[in-house]
Structure formats: structure tokens, C-alpha cells
Write a protein that binds this DNA or RNA. Structure first.
Length: 580
RNA sequence: GCCGUCGUAGCUCAGUCGGUGGAGCGUCCGCCUGUUAAGCGGAAGGUCAACGGUUCGAACCCGUUCGACGGCGCCA
């Protein structure tokens, strides 16, 4: 999928253009808003070197291609985008350099959308841009884009209505068709949305009409036509086609309106085209960007721990074993120990890795392969650890709410409500949680774990996530730090998502006393040899430190209001399924 | 590891006191110039998960196997 506007080079020119222009034309506004204001204008050195017909430009057009060289010219005043052949192109109109030199009128700089490299410089006349002569800013667009062809647009862009009653061109996949004799309605989707395309017999060539009438669901198509407002069209806009072509025809699509869970899982590679699944992927992408942003602005270093390991940090029955040459290795179920060893240099680290659990879990909350977002920081106690967690989570939510409002609405989640989930989250001690549950008629006693039913009860009516802190030692792993206020418990916390979605983060301050760690390892019958390197970390300048692991797919399940975690990941891996 | 449900057309399902298998959607053909999961008419499409047993006769009763799904525990 081509982005509508390209990035850095375009941005640098456009930012300059914006600042020096009095009235940007409406069609350019989007590009300007994407231009980075911090990007300093850079003069582009250009020199014409030869004349050629560029194969990606219309055959009839003859252009001068330019090679990069000194000298420099100033940036253009106006940018327009052109579509040439099948590849979207970007054109920057350079104003006349001076009135006495009409040769330089209507000059265009063209670059392919996905490349930052300049593909060619075109001029109506021959000549060089002078190194010292600055090009005056023109008050209006000097070159009309119409002489190229209609630009390709994303459906989201088309639905903005900017091109109302004007020619538009979209491409995508047929989402649904309906026909009625001389008229065919095709709903076309692309990665950004759906729009109805209407084809009337006689308006477009018969051959193209027939192609539209017989094109099956999921055929990839390219359509040219006029964008009109029409209340009868879903979404309020439709494209009245004047040109229609099937790029890739589709056999009868196996997913119809009636679908069983089993079928959708077997046809996962096709089902992920659905609007819901697309929305989930976009939301997840945005959550991740929010997380990255938070880590970056808090001086965390993103590191890359191994996936193949030789040591089992927790109960080894949960590990996937694999043949590793002449011995065995395991797929990592947490990067924690590796992150702990990295804090002695980087101090604050985080990593996003797949984690693997060979548990035969059959629940809506478990995958055997999931995306684990883990953090570890030196000089951090568990209170600060929890503050980091709530800040991180709310940054992720803010990001999704800001970047994916329509996707969230499609999934039944109000973006405004999501962005209101801000720190502090409520903290409930394990003991308090047990009290509360007993008050609600649960038969639990101190020392029993919080099951799915208990977690649901604690969070079903909440809007904000809930921290449950200081669990009994028996319920948690050996590496956690003892709670000085209550030696029966650890300095740890679980973060439970609201609305009954359950645990999304497990975190703790780490034990720094090797004697205690060794004692606990002996108690659970671990082979000390496997932990030598881990114990080393406490021997050489140990520091108090904490960290946590967040289940990215679980967060996405909650944010997207999904019933099952497997819909939060494109190709779920569960006990029963590794296909497709 | 534990508890539960299901397997009939490409898809979703109905069908059984045991007697030669049905609908809707999809596909194909025909009609329809404003459809909204369009409508109307017609056609094709099935080793009733597999194997074994009971019976004159099994999609249906019994057994075994395979596959899938719902949930618990474990965790993120």
C-alpha cells in the first residue's frame, strides 16, 4: 500500500513551502499537516544531465531527467501530486524563476512515493537552475496536474469528500456486489475503508460493465469515476464509475455471511482481510507506537534478548523444547533474566519479543505464542515500577484513541472513554482483595489464588485497571523481593484490566540477596548450575531493581473488546492449532 | 491435567419412535437501471467425520478412533 504522501524529502520541501506560502491550495493541506515543522529547509542541488522519456511517465510526455549535483536551488512554492502510469508520483511545482525567463515556467520535480530519491526533474524548457539565484515564491499553482491523470486515492481520502463531483481513482478489493440489470453496485474496500462504486450500463464500456457484473467478492479492482454525494449509498458517498478493471479475479470466496469459528480459524489467512481484523491490527500497531513513545521519552533502551535459551526461569514443563544440534534448547517464555543483566549497563531497558508457553491452556486469555512487552530498570522500587506501568498503559491507550478512533468505534470501543483512562490506577492489596471477595460470597481464604472468576468479580464494574499488590510468596516465582512490611508476601503487583478482562501485567521488585534466591531455588528443586550466571548478577555491584511483563495481545483484547485473545493476533498459536 | 458440547451440500443449519436425505446462503443460467446481507425464476451440488457392531434395513442405536469448539487450572 502506498502512503498518500512520502516522507522526509517531501516533508522538507513542503515545510518550506508552507512557511513561505500565503495560501496553500486545499488539496495540499493534508500534505502540509504531515510535514515536520522541525525539519529545516534544505536546498536541493540539481543539474540537468540528459533528456529521456521516463517509462513510468505517460508515453506522450517528454521529460528532462535530472541527476543529483551541485548547485542548489531554493525549494518550490507549491506542491502538487501527480499520478503517472500505475505508480503514484509526487510532483512539486517550481515557480517561474523570473518573469523574463519563461523557459522555467511550470517546472516539476517528480519523485516516486516510496522513495526519497529524486527520480527526475522536468522542465518545459532546457536550462540549469542557477546556484545563486533564489526562485521567487509564486502566489499560485503554476502547473496543472490535470495533464497527467487522476491521482490514486485511499478510500479514506475519497470519503473526506474533498474531491466531491470531481474525478477520483481508487483501487482495492470487492467487498460486496449487488446488481440490477443495467446497474451494478460494488462495495470496494482498501486498507483505509469501504466505498460504494456504481456502474451503469452505457456509462462505461460494455466490456468493463460486464466485467463488473461478473466480478466476484474479493476480486482486486481499479476504478475511475466521479465522486458524488448520495444518501442511497452506504457511507453517503459513491463513485460513479467511468472506468473499471479487474486486476486479479477471485474464485468464489470461501467466507460468506455465515461463518463458524472453526471455518474462520481454518481460513485465517483470508479472514484477516475482514474489517474487524484489520481494525484490530491497526489498533495494536497504535498501542505499540504509544508504548515505544513512552519508553523512548523515559530513557529506556530497546534491547533484543534471545528467543532460544538453555535455561528454564520457571517451571520447565511450560517450555517448548527443541533440538539444538546435539542437545536440547528451549523457546523463551520470558526475557526477564536477560533484561536484568542488561540494566547494569543500560540501566533502563525494554524489549518486545514473542514468548512461548507450552501450557495446555484452553481459555480466551491464553496463546502458546504471544507478544511479550517487558521492562526492567535499575534503582526502581516496586512503587515506581507500578507508576511506570500505569503511565505506559495510559500512553498506549491515548495513542490508540488518537490514531484509531474509527477502528475503535467499529469494534465497539469509545475512543474518548479510552483516553480518559489515566493514572493513578487503584491499588488493592491481595489481603484486601480477599476480604472484598469474601464479602461478595466467594469462598476464598488467605493463600488461595485469584482465579478467573475472582478476577472478573473484582474488575467487572471498573473503568480503570486495578493493581493487586503483595501476593503470598507461595503463589509467585522465586525471584521476587520479600515485602519488608509482611514477610509472608512479595513486593509485587498484577495489573488487572477492567470489565473482567483480567491480568495484563505481572511485575515485581527483584530479590537481590543471593542467599535467599538459592534457598528458594533449592526448595523448588532447581538445578543450581542453570542459574550460575543469574546469581552472578547479584555478585558484582547489585542494585535494587524492578520490572514487569505486559501481554500485548491481552491489552489488545481488552482495548478492542474481543471475546477471545486469538482475534488479537493474525495467526494465533494455541494448543490445538498451528495452521495456517 | 480436569469438566462439557459438537461433526449432515462449498458455508450455516434442520432432519431421527430406524424405512431410498431438506432449507437458506454461495455457485451456474435467465429476468430486473438505485441496490443496502437486494429481489424473482430455474439448475447443479451429499460415501450424513472414519472404522467396526446390532438390525431385513442405520445419518439416526452401541463401541472405538480422529477432528473441532466451550470452560477450568496454569500464566501475560
Amino acid at each position: 500500500m502506498y502512503p498518500l504522501f512520502s516522507y522526509s524529502l517531501t516533508a522538507s520541501w513542503l515545510s518550506t513551502a508552507t512557511s513561505s506560502m500565503k495560501r496553500p491550495t486545499p488539496r495540499l493541506r493534508n500534505s502540509f499537516s504531515q510535514a515536520s515543522s522541525s525539519f529545516l529547509p534544505r536546498p536541493l542541488p540539481l543539474k540537468l544531465s540528459r533528456t529521456a522519456t521516463d517509462p513510468i511517465l505517460p508515453q506522450s510526455s517528454r521529460f528532462e531527467t535530472a541527476a543529483m549535483a551541485a548547485p542548489a536551488i531554493t525549494p518550490p512554492s507549491t506542491a502538487i501530486m501527480a499520478k503517472a502510469s500505475l505508480r503514484p508520483m509526487y510532483a512539486l511545482t517550481v515557480p517561474r524563476s523570473n518573469r523574463s525567463s519563461p523557459k522555467h515556467n511550470s517546472s516539476i520535480l517528480i519523485m516516486p512515493s516510496r522513495s526519497f530519491r529524486v527520480a527526475g526533474l522536468t522542465l518545459t524548457g532546457k536550462g540549469f537552475w542557477s546556484p545563486n539565484k533564489s526562485v521567487p515564491i509564486a502566489p499560485k499553482v503554476l502547473y496543472s496536474v490535470q495533464s497527467f491523470s487522476i491521482r490514486m486515492q485511499s478510500i479514506r481520502q475519497v470519503l473526506s469528500g474533498e474531491q466531491l463531483d470531481k474525478p477520483v481513482k481508487v483501487r482495492g478489493w470487492i467487498y460486496r456486489t449487488r446488481s440490477s440489470g443495467g446497474i451494478v453496485f460494488a462495495v470496494v474496500r482498501d486498507s483505509s475503508g469501504i466505498i460504494q462504486v456504481t456502474m451503469k450500463k452505457g456509462v462505461l464500456p460494455d466490456q468493463e460493465f460486464e466485467a463488473a457484473a461478473s466480478a466476484g467478492v474479493e476480486s482486486s479492482v481499479m476504478v475511475e469515476g466521479t465522486l458524488v454525494e448520495d444518501k442511497r449509498a452506504p457511507g453517503g458517498y459513491e463513485v460513479r464509475a467511468t472506468k473499471f478493471s479487474v486486476i486479479g479475479s477471485s474464485e468464489p470466496f470461501p467466507i460468506t455471511e455465515y461463518q463458524s469459528t472453526e471455518l474462520l480459524l481454518d481460513l485465517r489467512h483470508l479472514w484477516i482481510r475482514s474489517r474487524e481484523q484489520t481494525a484490530v491490527m491497526r489498533v495494536k500497531d497504535s498501542l505499540l507506537r504509544g508504548a515505544r513513545g513512552w519508553f523512548h521519552s523515559n530513557d529506556y533502551v530497546e534491547v533484543t534478548p534471545p528467543i532460544i535459551t538453555g535455561v528454564a526461569p520457571e517451571d520447565s514443563t511450560q517450555l517448548f523444547q527443541l533440538k539444538y544440534f546435539d542437545r536440547f534448547a528451549y523457546l523463551s517464555q520470558t526475557a526477564q533474566f536477560y533484561l536484568e543483566s542488561l540494566i547494569f549497563s543500560c540501566e533502563r531497558v525494554w524489549a518486545l519479543t514473542p514468548s512461548f508457553r507450552a501450557e495446555k491452556s484452553r481459555t480466551p486469555r491464553h496463546l502458546t505464542e504471544f507478544w511479550h512487552l517487558e521492562m526492567e530498570a535499575a534503582w526502581l522500587d516496586n512503587d515506581a515500577n507500578m507508576k511506570a506501568q500505569e503511565e505506559l498503559v495510559s500512553s498506549m491507550l491515548r495513542s490508540a484513541a488518537k490514531e484509531c478512533p474509527s477502528e475503535l468505534k467499529l469494534l465497539g470501543r469509545e475512543p474518548e472513554a479510552l483516553s480518559k483512562i489515566e493514572p493513578p490506577f487503584e491499588r488493592l492489596s491481595y489481603s484486601e482483595a480477599m476480604e472484598e471477595l469474601r464479602g461478595k460470597g466467594f469462598e476464598v481464604s488467605w493463600g488461595s489464588d485469584l482465579g478467573a472468576a475472582e478476577e472478573r468479580e473484582l474488575t467487572k464494574d471498573r473503568i480503570l485497571p486495578l493493581f493487586v499488590v503483595n501476593y503470598p510468596k507461595e503463589l509467585k516465582p522465586f525471584y521476587m523481593k520479600e515485602n519488608p512490611d509482611d514477610a509472608r508476601t512479595y513486593k509485587n503487583s498484577d495489573l488487572l484490566a477492567p470489565e473482567g478482562y483480567g491480568e495484563i501485567i505481572g511485575g515485581s521488585e527483584r530479590e537481590t540477596d543471593n542467599a535467599l534466591i538459592i534457598e528458594r531455588l533449592r526448595d523448588i528443586g532447581e538445578d543450581m548450575k542453570n542459574y550460575e550466571w543469574y546469581l552472578d548478577l547479584r555478585k558484582y555491584g547489585s542494585v535494587p531493581h524492578s520490572g514487569f511483563g505486559l501481554g500485548l495481545d491481552r491489552v489488545a483484547t481488552w482495548v478492542c473488546r474481543l471475546e477471545h485473545i486469538r482475534d488479537a493476533i493474525p495467526f494465533p498459536r494455541t494448543v490445538a492449532r498451528i495452521y495456517p
